[in-house]
Design a protein around this nucleic acid. Structure first.
Lengths: 227, 227
DNA sequence: AAGTAATGTTAAAGATTGTTAAATAGTAGT
DNA sequence: ACTACTATTTAACAATCTTTAACATTACTT
């Protein structure tokens, strides 16, 4: 397996070097650039496999930089780091071709999770990758968005499936509220949080047929599925 | 494999040189001309395999240039770049013999997708090459626009085939609405979106005979075919 | 125990998608 | 040109998905 190289564009030097240090410990060679222009030059001169771009930077903002990078390489995964989420911004980001979006403050684990998820998606045999979870007597197919028990199959909506997938990824471990909100809703405001609660209720209904499977709340933290 | 040479006529020098830079990184030798007259001279003097023509250019617009190019070479693929889509313009473009049409702003990924699609179509020994998809028990021939199951063959209309081809190209992955609309309808407005929905319904009907093949909606994103 | 915050639940409102049929546009033959 | 036919778009309404609102319940804090 080759070394994965990450381009990091972040004007806050403290945060930047912290991230760089962390990523390198995790085995990613990281190039840190403290403004958009330098990052662009770096991108042209060196080889990178993934870009982490701060949106708000002096001189050249992350979106502009991303557009320029996209002109050179359409495939390289781009993750935006941003202080605050405006739906508008998220949409603009994705229209440029962002692969993910992460709002500050974020934990290092969260960032790593997203980086690895994207690298799996990009490198891996993608598409055909089977995403079937066993949840007690239930079988959940994230691709097809279906939940099956005793031959009975229930179709799930997109959001239901996305949430159950995150829960299933963390069986018997806490899925943090903010993490789920940022991953699925791209923003962790109050209303999205309530929307997520509604979906938790829906999933619980679907999962009633096996009493050994349960989604429990961890007050103030999030939810975990036990099975 | 020989080198493919692209003629690029674009009066906006910033965009032009970015495109050139990008295309060359992708392995296409690119000649950039910043107005129609220069582009015409360039076309006569050098050899090119594909033309990217901006429609709106001072002195000589893209359509006029295309007509002149067509008099010299009836076969060379031509893609128009245009700021805004007027149905009128698209029709005029195709009547001149355009091979494709792309509206700004477009992503580089999108442009590359179209260039490569056309080169496959034009160059390749093609025939039945990569244009036959296996979708569960179905066999779909994008060239012939036919869908076959158990020896029964159903003819598809052009739009039906184009849409199924895009879906088939992204098996088990989400085909984004906007991308499909821009690729097939050249514009992603509300009405085209509804038209696309109608075609999704039609395709679902055709695909009913194999229950393992399904086109599912990913709310707010697009569709994916699973099989 | 009382008060506050977080979660549970249900229903309505709002947005997107599914479907059918009619209107329009395009095509080929005469 | 006209007619007959097919393909595509538009319109209308139905169904589904998501968010928002409201109120109920539970958990935590003091």
């Amino acid at each position: 397996m080759e070394e994965t190289r990450i381009l990091l564009a972040e004007d806050d030097e403290n945060l930047g070097s912290l991230l760089k240090e962390y990523l390198e410990i995790k085995g990613y060679k990281t190039g840190l650039f403290t403004n958009g222009n330098r990052a662009y030059k770096g991108f042209i001169q060196e080889h990178f496999d993934l870009c982490l771009l701060d949106v708000m930077m002096p001189e050249k903002d992350g979106f502009t930089l991303a557009k320029e990078i996209r002109q050179i390489n359409t495939d390289i995964p781009i993750i935006f780091l941003t202080a605050k989420t405006l739906k508008q911004d998220v949409l603009e980001g994705f229209s440029i071709g962002a692969d993910d979006y992460i709002t500050k403050p974020f934990s290092m684990e969260e960032l790593l999770f997203r980086i690895e998820a994207i690298l799996r998606r990009t490198h891996g045999t993608e598409g055909s990758q089977q995403e079937v979870f066993q949840l007690g007597k239930y079988s959940f197919d994230a691709q097809k968005q279906t939940l099956t028990i005793d031959g009975q199959t229930q179709k799930l909506t997109t959001k239901e499936a996305e949430l159950l997938k995150l829960l299933g990824n963390n069986k018997n471990k806490v899925l943090e509220r903010n993490f789920a909100l940022r991953t699925i809703w791209f923003d962790d405001n109050y209303f999205n949080a309530r929307s997520m609660d509604v979906y938790i209720t829906k999933l619980r209904k679907y999962l009633k047929q096996d009493p050994l499977v349960e989604i429990i709340n961890v007050h103030g933290k999030g939810f975990k599925i036990i099975c």
